[in-house]
Amino acid sequence: MFGQGLLKGLSVTGRRMLGKTECDMYPYRKRVLPPKSRIFLSMRATPDGKALCNACLTCQQGCPDNVIRIEQDPEDRKRAVSFRVNSGRCTFCGICEENCPRHALTFTQDFERATFDKGTLTYALIADGTATGACVIVERTEPEHPASAEGGEDVG
């Protein structure tokens, strides 16, 4: 009978109309993202402002989009003077975090970083040798896992 399919479709929408809503009430209720979500590139640092980064440049050289700029201390090459992230270019691929031998880089799930000013998309994780407020505070200075020395050389 013509119209049977239409009626069936109407019954589906009718049932949905009475059922529960599938909505994120976003500004009123913030969603909790899973800990693996790659949202905001951050760095682990101790409460006294010491970042775990040892300026090995692995992240800067492995980044596909030149997001990371590290300035090494000329006297102590294992110390970063500044660590800047241009998040406007970032594609959130996670290669930097994966390759970091000291597990210093990490992603937080803070997604409310929209801005009206393009200039503020570049932020520092280390400035003048100390970790900035954008870092994640951890108690331990040593990495939780021993550095994974995977085979291979850095990008030429």
Partner: peptide, 14 residues
């Protein structure tokens, strides 16, 4: 199944 009920049997769609 719900999608089939919604669209697949719909006479106008067919």
């Amino acid at each position: 199944d719900e999608f089939d009920g919604l669209v697949t049997g719909n006479e106008i769609f067919l």
